[in-house]
Design a protein around this nucleic acid. Structure first.
Length: 563
DNA sequence: TACTGGTGCGCG
DNA sequence: AAAGCGCGCACCAGTA
């Protein structure tokens, strides 16, 4: 699997606007080295990328790639030392994982950059190159020690994700701010001129205050709202919509409507639009590997929480189209394949896994199937969901054993791993102490109960970790394969308005766990859609070989981003 | 005034 | 008031 002939080049910022590019020899030591200014670097990297497409060994895509992209230069393949450090340090699938190093841990975004450090740049100039090569060698050794190639695939996919995150930010998600404004006005009423709430919210708020008999009630204060509700006989323990909806009282409907509006205004209102959408593009900050399971996180812009109702504001540029694709029930499909559970894989054939579960006779309705499957993966023990899980244990014993074993490992303080070898964090010292105290002879029964509860909490986490993490791996490979295929398409006849380095290229524009949005020239819509389908098939094959698991896509080609 | 924890809700 | 995982963000209230 290892491409021994693959050319590798270290690309490193060495401070003070200087960069080093160093050929990496077969043994992983330094070959020829060039020291370049930023403009020289951009030209050199571009030429080398086009000529040989080496694997670039970089510290972190987030640190170096944005400036290359803004100059129109792309990197094909990388080994991202920071992203891979996290994987290889924590992996439990090899006997000797990577030694942890603070130098290669993810840097917290520095709010204020201390000017102090610039002064040291010159004196340490030689060290970054040597240290980076040493770190790369150490990582390569760990990767090679996973003889089935899992860590090689995982690190390649993770590194590709690092590139894609920056590329999607550079390209942005095409966003129609006029349509967004229209939706806001329709839902919330007229936008206030000099601050304050939009008209419909003012009206609704007044109605709520009137019904509650408190003209000065502050609706955003949970304690005050709770007291006001109690005064009129609505005896809720919280102000959550779920609980409020249980009550029949004239205040419920306008209050729930107000809360919904309030949420839209504060999360994705006009302020959000002004801050996050520029030149017709929404550019969120993606954080690849930001979740322990390997899922991406985001920071700023709430990229992973875009309400469905706002999707109509996603709009392709003239002459371009959007491809919106997602996987239905990715996680249980991953579970069936990981466990090689033929019965569950049969249920997963076709578009609707839950319908397949009903057909298997495990449960009676699709709704029950959904609750049962989610409960199995999340560790439900009570309620409707918990009641249904044992039925799945009968019909899909292999799949259920996999998640049950993962839960037991976690409860015992152990570590679990995804299909490709990303491992769960060790429980905290406090957790371990709590567990060991619970076995003492003279321990208080309440303390035992707390320890048991915390053990089960951690078990639910490790239970879900293997499934959520493997799904994240599938998605990562899917993304990387989509990118690879889109790069083979010819330049666009009509440029996209504000997509920067991607103005003439079909590109990924959005990613959300198991969903992608592509922005593509309309002439290439069919080819791009096919690329998305092929990439999904390849991702499934890469992970599970010939095991017959369906991973069907819901895919539509349109001008807007609705599903 | 700046922080932290709690609440609530959007997404998968 | 969700049950049952993983997130980010806004807002409030209490505290330093």
């Amino acid at each position: 699997m290892t491409a021994v002939h693959e050319q590798r080049v270290l690309l490193l910022s060495v401070g003070a606007g200087r960069f080093a590019v160093v050929e990496i020899t077969g043994e992983g030591s330094a070959g020829e080295r060039r020291d370049l200014s930023e403009s020289e670097l951009i030209e050199w990297v571009d030429r080398r990328e086009r000529a040989q497409s080496p694997r670039w060994v970089i510290r972190a895509a987030s640190e170096i790639y944005p400036r290359l992209l803004s100059a129109g230069v792309r990197l094909g393949r990388t080994h991202d030392l920071v992203l891979c450090h996290a994987i290889l340090r924590d992996t439990a699938i090899v006997p000797r994982p990577l030694a942890p190093s603070a130098d290669w841990a993810r840097r917290e975004p520095v709010v204020e950059a201390p000017a102090l450090f610039d002064a040291f740049d010159e004196s340490v100039e030689e060290h970054p190159v040597d240290q980076a090569l040493a770190q790369y060698r150490a990582q390569s050794d760990v990767i090679a020690s996973s003889t089935d190639g899992r860590l090689l695939l995982l690190c390649a996919a993770e590194s590709a994700g690092g590139l894609i995150a920056e590329e999607m930010r550079a390209a942005g998600l095409p966003w129609d701010d006029v349509e967004h404004d229209r939706i806001l006005t329709e839902m919330l009423g007229t936008r206030p001129i000099g601050g304050g709430l939009p008209s419909r919210m003012v009206e609704l708020g007044d109605r709520v205050r009137e019904i509650l008999g408190d003209r000065s009630l502050h609706l955003d204060s949970q304690p005050k709202m709770l007291r006001a509700l109690h005064r009129v006989g609505v005896h809720v323990e919280s102000t959550s919509k779920w609980e409020l909806a249980q009550h029949e009282h004239p205040v419920v409907e306008p209050l729930l409507a107000y809360k919904k509006m309030s949420r839209l205004l504060s999360a994705n209102g006009w302020a959000w639009l002004a801050e996050w959408v520029h030149d017709g593009r929404f550019r969120p900050v993606y954080v690849p590997g930001g979740v322990v399971t390997g899922r991406w996180a985001s920071s700023g812009g709430g990229a992973l929480q875009l309400p469905r109702g706002l999707r109509t504001a996603v709009r392709a540029d003239p002459g371009w189209m959007l491809i919106v694709a997602d996987v239905a029930q990715l996680e249980p499909r991953m579970l069936a394949a990981m466990a090689a559970d033929q019965a569950m894989a049969r249920a997963a054939q076709g578009r609707d896994l839950y319908a397949g579960v009903v057909e298997s006779g495990a449960v009676a309705t699709r709704e029950e199937a959904k609750y049962a499957v989610l409960g199995a993966m999340y560790g439900a023990t009570t309620g409707d969901s918990g009641r249904l899980v044992p039925r799945l244990r009968k019909v899909y014993p292999r799949a259920m054993s996999l998640v049950d074993d993962a839960a037991r490992s976690g409860e015992d303080g152990g570590v679990v791993s995804t299909w490709l070898g990303r491992s769960s964090p060790r429980p905290s010292v406090e957790w371990s102490q709590l567990q060991s105290r619970a076995t003492d002879a003279d321990v208080d029964q309440s303390e035992v109960a707390v320890a048991r509860r915390r053990a089960r909490d951690w078990g639910r986490f490790t239970r879900n970790f293997v499934v959520q993490g493997t799904a994240a791996e599938w998605s990562l490979i899917w993304l990387a394969e989509i990118r690879h295929r889109l790069d083979a398409l010819p330049p666009a006849p009509t440029p996209a308005a504000a997509s920067g380095p991607f103005a003439r290229r079909a590109h990924l524009a959005f990613f959300l766990h198991d969903e992608v949005i592509l922005h593509v020239p309309e002439e290439q819509a069919d080819a791009a859609a096919e690329a998305v389908r092929e990439a999904a098939a390849v991702a499934t094959r890469r992970l599970f070989g010939t095991f017959p698991i369906d991973v069907p896509l819901d895919l539509r080609v349109s001008r807007s981003g609705e599903k």
